[in-house]
Design a protein around this nucleic acid. Structure first.
Lengths: 250, 250
DNA sequence: CGGTAATTTGAGCCATTTCAAACTGTGTGG
DNA sequence: CCACACAGTTTGAAATGGCTCAAATTACCG
């Protein structure tokens, strides 16, 4: 599990948003898209930008949930651990995704930056005040939570009932579709995460993930272009491998 | 998969609440607990009681999500299917639980009554009007969703990384704790669902679940008292088997 | 260009599955 | 009240998909 880096370091920076929420890079897809101009200004006063480096811990499972975040750039993994070290990744986050919906007292999982990552941070107190005043925001959050719930259920189906091949195929397709929804290229799909991360997300071992990639490559269904890029050469074959089950898992 | 019964039958009844929400049997634990008396009255005008019999389908995955429900009595299973029939149960619901949080256009899973079950049904249109007027209710729903999300993540850890023994132990403890939270006896814990349901929830086969129960029984950690009752004889042994991971999964 | 981490490949093993059969409880009809 | 039928559960034996352990290869970085 190599890239589990210094869990102690503080985020490199933590300052008021410089450019302003109005021209936030993820404005269109983030929760803020539901805000009126005046509300956006209030939002701007409570958010801070925070930068994390590769492998850095953002928060830990069990810790008081004092902050909510929006991913601005980079990628984040959500992790649950068993005492003996077995690891399950419960989700990957990309720009525009919301982090920390648990309005519970403590975080239900740890979050780590996969690559260099910029987050938009909101204090829980502040956001609760805002939520009380802007029902629309709460509504949007509920929608976000509902969406996550759907993804979680797809993932349960994957973990409980799919074969290794089906898991990997589902993962690739789902990642590709998600990239597209967020305005990134969907076909050479970019894997920001390591094989170990993928394995811990799919409930497999690194070796099995690797072997499955190899099988897909030899069958000319995908092509590994290096640098984490995967060309989905035969999309319909991939769809076939998913066993017709739905594909929206990540 | 024996108890997959007539998926066509309509709920036996569908009428205005007779006794009134004020003395609803699950008032204290359901979402309605967040309502003021006046609001409760509005709620009462939009809810209907519906009765389902053992095995009856409540709604199907993919169908327009026109209703939300509260479980009044009985038990419900949430199901996702692969085209070839593989089945994953994503959750069990008991009195007080909320059904259909997905505010998405369609249901993400099917729901079936495990035993005879009474539900409190709300039309989606109606509930949305109510949500717009009663921010408190929306807040409560968000809390509910957050709670479900936590449970879903625990379940991903279970499905992705725990052994059969750990899964079964987690399941029993979690069911027991949940029963207690809802005011039912936690120690002879009552299993409303079949071995097949348990297997499909834990990502195992019926045979493996049965064998694991037997092993626990022979180790005097549990005792099967018949009629779906399981005595948790050695609770600390059970906790040990969970591998220290947290136990709140159902 | 060397050193280290990540990925891939190989071989044997094991937990769980699969296939099959016996057992148990429950409701039904005679 | 008993015998039968049926569904659910348990048990057994064999097969296997993915895991473990180990080593080779490749990619990355200073």
């Amino acid at each position: 599990m190599g890239n589990t880096a210094s869990p102690l370091a503080k985020p490199r920076q933590d300052r008021a948003i410089t450019t302003g929420c109005a021209d936030c890079e993820i404005r269109a897809i983030g929760v803020c898209s539901s805000l009126a101009p005046g509300e956006l200004e209030r939002m701007q006063r409570i958010v801070r930008e925070a930068q994390y480096e590769e492998g850095q811990l953002i928060f830990s499972e069990g810790e008081p949930a004092d902050n909510l975040f929006n991913v601005l750039t980079g990628a984040v993994r959500l992790i649950k651990l068993l005492p003996d070290g077995r690891r399950q990744i419960t989700g990957f986050l990309f720009p525009g995704d919301f982090l920390g919906i648990a309005l519970n007292a403590t975080y239900a999982y740890s979050a780590e930056a996969i690559t260099g990552t910029k987050l938009c941070r909101m204090g829980r107190r502040d956001i609760e005040t805002l939520l009380a005043d802007i029902p629309n925001l709460e509504h949007r959050l509920l929608g976000e939570a509902a969406h996550e719930l759907v993804a979680a259920q797809d993932q349960m189906l994957l973990l409980g009932r799919k074969t290794a091949m089906e898991r990997v195929a589902s993962f690739l397709v789902s990642l590709s579709e998600r990239a597209q929804r967020h305005g990134f290229p969907g076909n050479p799909v970019s894997l920001a995460m390591s094989r170990t991360d993928i394995a811990d997300f799919l409930g497999l071992t690194t070796e099995t993930v690797s072997r499955t990639f190899t099988r897909l490559r030899k069958a000319k269904i995908i092509a590994l272009e290096g640098n984490g890029l995967v060309q989905l050469t035969d999309r319909s074959a991939l769809d076939g491998l998913i066993a017709g089950g739905n594909s929206d898992a990540a």
